[in-house]
Structure formats: structure tokens, C-alpha cells
């Protein structure tokens, strides 16, 4: 089965991202395809490489990056939501005149159309968050 995933919450306030991470891992291991993971609302905060949790806590951002690299999963951060919350890649840095960027490896910033496309292309779109 082909899955699309939407994550609406940041990595640490809410369990949604961790649950989604576990779901995506399990789905891929069971032989399913994960077409795209789309980060929306505060979910965009999963995409900053500046996240530095204490050493005895899990690093959820790195876990996403590693999962994406291992299984070639498309991690998309919504551009409108990212701009509000300061998630920046090189392109956005240049466009908006920022002094740096913070996008984590394996993530890319794109538009809401990517979410609708996932809904069209996938057999199931699964939403994580409140």
C-alpha cells in the first residue's frame, strides 16, 4: 500500500511526530511504500537541524533524517507554515534575506500542493496530531 503522512505537531510538545516516526518505520519494514511525509502547522519544527535535546533524550529530528536517508523517504515542510515559524533552507534564506538556514538533512521546503498531491497519489493519507 502507498501511504502519505501528515504531521501537525512539533517534535517535543506532542507525541504525534514520534508516533508517526514509528508508523512510517513499521510501514516500510512491512513492505509498504511511504510516498511522502508532509509537515504542517507546528509540525514544521521537526525539520530544524538546530534541535539539541539533552543527551538522555531521543533526537527526533535526527531520527527523521536517518529514516529518510535509509528508505529514501520524501520529507516535505510546508513553506507557508515554515516561514511563520523560522524554518529556513538555502532558497528561503536567499529569498527572504535571512542570515542563515536551519533545515535538517533529508527535509525540503515546498508548497501545500505537495500535501494535496499526496492525498491524490496515495492509497491512504494518515494524519498525526490533535
Amino acid at each position: 500500500m502507498k501511504f502519505g503522512i501528515q504531521i501537525n505537531e512539533g517534535p517535543y510538545t506532542h507525541e504525534a511526530s514520534t508516533t508517526a516516526l514509528n508508523f512510517v518505520s513499521a510501514a516500510v519494514e512491512a513492505g509498504h511504500e511511504v510516498f511522502r511525509v508532509f509537515f504542517y502547522h507546528d509540525g514544521v519544527n521537526n525539520g530544524t537541524r538546530y534541535t539539541t535535546p539533552p543527551q538522555d533524550d531521543r533526537n527526533i529530528v535526527e531520527a527523521w533524517s536517518e529514516l529518510a536517508e535509509k528508505h529514501n523517504i520524501d520529507l516535505v515542510v510546508c513553506v507557508a507554515a515554515a516561514q511563520r515559524r523560522g524554518i529556513v533552507d538555502e532558497g528561503e534564506q536567499e529569498r527572504n534575506g535571512k542570515d542563515g538556514n536551519n533545515i535538517a538533512p533529508g527535509f525540503r521546503i515546498s508548497g501545500l500542493g505537495q500535501l494535496i498531491e499526496a492525498g491524490i497519489q496515495c492509497d491512504r493519507l494518515v494524519v498525526f496530531g490533535d
Binding site: Y40, H41, A80, A81, G111, L112, G113, L115, I116
Partner: peptide, 8 residues
């Protein structure tokens, strides 16, 4: 932000 998705 839901309304933004709906419009898209």
C-alpha cells in the same frame, strides 16, 4: 492554516 489548505 486549514483554510489555507482548503483554498489550495
Amino acid at each position: 492554516e486549514s483554510l489555507e489548505v482548503i483554498l489550495i
